[in-house]
Amino acid sequence: MLKQPVRHLIDPEDLSIEELDALIKLAQKIVHSPREYADACKGKILATLFYEPSTRTRFSFESAMLRLGGNVLGFGNANVSSVAKGESIADTIRTVSAYADIAVMRHPKEGAPKLASQYSLIPVINGGDGGHQHPTQTLTDLLTIQTFKNSIRDNTIAFCGDLKFGRTVHSLIRTLARYGIQKFILISPEELTLPDSLKRMLNQTYSLQLEEVRTIEEAVEEIDILYMTRIQRERFFNEAEYAKFKNAYLLDLEKIKNAKEDMIIMHPLPRVNEISYEVDQDPRAVYFEQARLGVYIRMALILKLLGVECAC
């Protein structure tokens, strides 16, 4: 029998829309019957190669593999691995290929997981590369949208905050465009708008409308999904500028008083101060549920990339 080529997830576009839909369905099955998958990856090992700090993504992957009955090894800080001795990514992944069955990599350099995939004998998952892509956050977001809105396509989605450097936004908006969403509302200060190269690509490839506004209130009444992101202090020249934007993009109950009753508020987390704690009590706030769903979609992804046939 011919050996199947190794599949990686570097970019959401590595998966077709049909494959994305199948992953979402599988994740929903796991949500409903997690015990049936408890031994699906027994004897398999996930390597977590985190060259920069991460709490949620790493724990979420580890939790996913442990819940599938597999094991986990890896590092959460490049300073304590051979990388600190100057080992190349290619050598690291070739070695790890001998120790594990699948790997997830986070790296500050954009394109690093793609480079790893070119030398790897096992599936490589991009766990976030610089400001470029974060495909498993995209999968998490898709599952969240499907779960709470029952459809991915028929929504007006607004992205708010740092749209320039926010990799979660870049990955998600491209994928939603593939799903055929025709209108996106982009809420950000002028300094943090979506990169021109991405806007150009979206406009050239898809038939869609990108509406840019400066405040949440301008668009809140037509939004079905409000996707908040963190505005990072280090992006600004001085504290005064940061303070100005920080408050303008702080979501509180006052700002969503005219929003739809079935709007949902998403956030990739961690939240710092862009969503007031009072919003947590609002039934439209789904960001903690979103984090929980992230484990299940990663379980589905691990099963798919490992080619685990589950009779569950």
Binding site: K109, E110, L115
Partner: peptide, 13 residues
């Protein structure tokens, strides 16, 4: 031209 790109820091890329 992107200073954060892996091609600017890894000879394999």
């Amino acid at each position: 031209h992107n200073p954060r790109c892996i091609t600017n820091s890894d000879d394999y890329a």
